[in-house]
Amino acid sequence: MMVAICKRYLWNSSDMQDVLQESFISMFNNLNQFDVNKASFKTWSSRITINTCLSFNKRSTKNSSEELILNLHAPYIDPNYIDSMSDEELIGYLEQMPFPYLQIFNLFIIDGFTHQEIAEMLGIKVTLSRKRLARAKEWLQKTITDKNEFCKKYIFKQ
């Protein structure tokens, strides 16, 4: 579980072992703060791992700038198309997603945090969190459409 979280949240997956180690140490050191009445151990340990990943990303991306200039004219995609995608295909799309969008996507869609919680965790405004989620969706729609058009245009025609 923790490995999966690290892989999803880390900017650079080669740091996974370091982050896992930090997460385990944080858990052991703060085990006295764990209250079974408030949350399960799985939830508590997941939260610690996510926080550790986010902190690690902050440190590693401090001096890096990310190109966010995207032509986000996203076409409409039938939601049922998602069901027709294979696991590998879906993972492939998510792995290509720009990291700021993927971070919000992971936190909101997969781990179920609210925008308010995401804003506090990442140190951003709630509106920016909402915007990034919307743009993640647009990016995904556009990427799927572009790939399909590419396939139609160049692969299926052959």
């Binding site: 490995v3 999966a4 892989k7 999803r8 997956s13 996974m16 072992q17 896992l20 995609i77 939601p79 049922n80 998602i82 069901d83 995608m85 696991d87 879906l90 993972i91 998510l94 869609i109 997969i110 989620l133 969706k137 995904l140 729609q141």
Partner: peptide, 24 residues
């Protein structure tokens, strides 16, 4: 959350996105 995101959420809930290969 619209249908597109709901579908994505439903797919990812039980999706094993990554494995733990590569960890010593």
């Amino acid at each position: 959350m619209d249908d597109f995101l709901n579908k994505l959420k439903a797919r990812t809930e039980n999706l094993r996105l990554f494995n733990h290969e590569g960890v010593d």
